[in-house]
Design a protein around this nucleic acid. Structure first.
Lengths: 242, 242
DNA sequence: TAGCACCTATAGCAACGCTATATGAACTGC
DNA sequence: GCAGTTCATATAGCGTTGCTATAGGTGCTA
């Protein structure tokens, strides 16, 4: 989070606010904490930022610039849909790296407060999707696709933030990401890659049987048999897709 | 939001908090406002709820029960994937009807505060997806599908809440919804014959898996394991129909 | 009637966001 | 070189916030 080029007190306030916010674990951060850490007095804050929300807006704004920079950073790969995947992953990583900032940016958005950030993020995504559309790889309007993908991206990131760090499973992100991209991609886009070709019918059937068994309490197998059976079933249904 | 059955002061506090929260437009709601509207004094609030957050938790909890009730309300249509669509739409509608409550529930979730709500919502979705899986309509694990769909559902709802009421476009929801459902649905999804044929879904699924295994030479199980597995599968699939 | 839980109220504390007012420093015009 | 203006910061304090120490009422059971 770079605040260079600001007058010293203003910059220190931004830094202090960002640091306290990042370490607050959700607890509210007071102006007194901020001004004390910044080594200035209360009115200085209000002179520079108007009010507390103005200061937080500035922090968010700096955070968003960092986010945008991250999104633009990698060179386009020539495969727009691959770039979208990286954009998605970058978004998730940003949220997980700075959860408090992310929650302020995307978790608390109200119509009257700051949809500007959302619009900017959408524009960023749309820009990338335009390239895909130009390459004939899109089956829906780039704008609609961008809104849809971003919404799912935000949802996934929030869910991951809500989870304890230990059991965060990025498969959720990967799966949702690929589902969304596949949905907006035109049919001829992915062939050859083989990646999106769907799972084998064995897996499908195993998943179905597993669900059916859970729901039915069949008594055809003893409990010990059932235990082993389910274990094998799980092994089959989580086999790497062929 | 029904608070019946509560002691009068407690109930009035819940009602007052819910009402003020709903009309607050994002502005913080003070305990003094709440207690005044409820016609009680400050300590009463703390006697019943511990602190302000406890009161809000109770409001959220009541709101969540309403949400769950809404999700369970409609009769299953026999087409699980259609039910999932209605579940999605119901989720979005709940969020748009009570945006402040929704933001507290899903916009501010931190690992240490309340992932319980998320887990419950996931369980609800998973329950419905199990039916789809039992009907052979799912190509991924119900749990993963539920997490993924719910994440996208939350993201879409938050984005719609963030938009001014005038330009809310529910196409975003419809499009994302169908993309997610399509992504988790298996290819042969629409046949629906399994349920109609009179056999239990366990048997149908076992038969399907048996057939698929015969055809595929999966190597997830050793040959001896596979032998026993197939025997059990046979026992299940020839069980007297329920 | 005594005792006991439960529920509620009076009064007030520390911390909060914010501001009226004032002081020093830096630049501007003449 | 110096008055005037503007910018940046500080002292002190206002009203409101979440919350509580303490105590008074109310309806039970014995």
């Amino acid at each position: 989070m770079s605040f260079e080029g600001q007058p010293p007190a203003k910059m220190r306030l931004l830094r202090a606010a960002a640091e306290l916010l990042a370490n607050s674990a959700g607890a509210p951060v007071s102006t007194r904490q901020i001004t004390q850490l910044a080594g200035v007095s209360a009115p200085t804050l209000y002179h520079h930022f108007g009010d507390k929300e103005g200061l937080f807006d500035a922090v968010v704004s700096a955070g968003f610039e960092e986010y945008v920079a991250g999104e633009r950073d990698f060179a386009p790969s020539g495969q727009p849909l691959e770039d979208i995947k990286r954009m998605w992953d970058n978004h998730v990583q940003f949220g997980l790296n700075q959860p408090e900032l992310y929650l302020v940016m995307f978790g608390n958005i109200r119509p009257e407060s700051r949809p500007a950030i959302v619009a900017d993020a959408e524009a960023l995504m749309e820009e990338m999707l335009n390239k895909a559309a130009a390459a004939g790889q899109l089956s829906v309007q780039p704008r609609e696709a961008a809104r849809s993908i971003l919404a799912a991206n935000v949802g996934v990131t929030l869910m991951l933030i809500a989870e304890a760090v230990a059991d965060r499973n990025l498969d959720l992100s990967t799966m949702t990401r690929d589902a969304m991209i596949f949905a907006v991609a035109s049919d001829q886009a992915e062939q050859g890659a083989g990646e999106a070709s769907g799972k084998s019918s064995v897996v499908v059937a195993a998943i179905a049987l597993n669900a059916a068994l859970q729901a039915s309490h069949s008594d055809q197998l003893s409990s010990s048999e059932l235990k082993l059976f389910l274990e094998w079933l799980h092994r089959i249904s989580t086999s790497p897709s062929t």
